[in-house]
């Protein structure tokens, strides 16, 4: 079983968000993490499959050299090797194209992504990789079993879940429930230092999406406190001022 896990880097949710004058993300003082859906569910599910069915788990990340911290963390959790496409991603399609260009010659049986990144929440990369590689795509998987060449996957849909069957190869995006988070141990961290991390230059790509501008939301006006004994007043405000009831 040849498995590819796509991992990305995001600011921690608690990070203070600001932008430089030239509309770039201001990274100073920001703590970056591996996107939780990639780390907790996609990677761990890939490892579980590899542990029971054999094979290899390869990580791939599109990003600069400073992403190697999170790549090494993925190796410490248990992936065998990693590939970094040496380019700052400019759009979902750029990222997906680079991953697909690498994957097409490799013949992966399974490609995992997280269900979305927690910074941009686009949930597009998995679908785009699947399209570039002409593979089926199952999104928001929260449980998955494999029997031979057939995967049975439960996934989140609007207001419920559904179960699907699909033959490999397939692209799967991982949601909560697919696996249990693993914390890297000392041995894993030591081994990760010498695991192969290949750096590949990006393939040529025409970018059609331009990030023009970021705005910070207007500061929220102060909360209006209402006396606990005056719920009629709260209801009045919700009706007359907020117009939500």
């Amino acid at each position: 079983m040849k498995i590819l896990v796509c991992i990305s880097k995001t600011p921690d949710t608690t990070a203070k968000i600001s932008f430089t004058d030239d509309q770039k993300f201001n990274a100073s003082g920001v703590q970056f993490i591996m996107n939780p859906y990639d780390e907790w569910y996609a990677l761990v599910k890939a490892l579980e499959i590899q542990e029971s069915a054999g094979g290899t788990v390869t990580l791939i990340n599109v990003g600069g050299a400073d992403n190697e911290t999170i790549i090494r963390k993925g190796l410490a959790i248990g992936a065998e090797k990693a590939v970094r496409i040496n380019a700052e991603p400019t759009s979902s399609m750029f990222t997906a194209y680079q991953i697909a260009e690498y994957a097409k010659a490799e013949g992966f049986d399974l490609i995992f992504t997280g269900k979305e990144t927690i910074d941009f929440n686009a949930a597009e990369v998995g679908a785009m990789i699947a399209e570039y590689l002409d593979m089926p795509y199952v999104s928001f998987a929260n449980a998955m079993t494999l029997a031979g060449n057939t995967a049975t996957i439960s996934c989140e849909i609007e207001g419920g879940t559904e179960t699907v069957e699909v033959n490999l190869p397939v692209v799967v995006s991982a949601a909560k429930g697919l696996a249990e988070q693993r914390i890297p141990n000392m041995r894993g961290i030591m081994m990760a230092k010498t695991k192969p991390l290949e750096v590949i230059e990006p393939a040529a790509f025409t970018e059609n999406v331009v990030t023009r501008q970021f705005d910070l939301p207007a500061p929220k006006s102060a909360v209006k406190m209402i006396d606990a004994d005056n719920m009629d007043e709260l209801v009045r405000l919700l009706h007359e001022e907020a117009k939500v009831i």
């Binding site: 600011p11 949710t13 990070a15 968000i17 932008f19 927690i118 910074d119 941009f120 929440n121 999406v209 331009v210 990030t211 023009r212 501008q213 970021f214 705005d215 910070l216 939301p217």
Partner: peptide, 11 residues
Amino acid sequence: VYSGKAKVHYT
């Protein structure tokens, strides 16, 4: 984007 902490405009 960024958990509602910013808005991005794409052309």
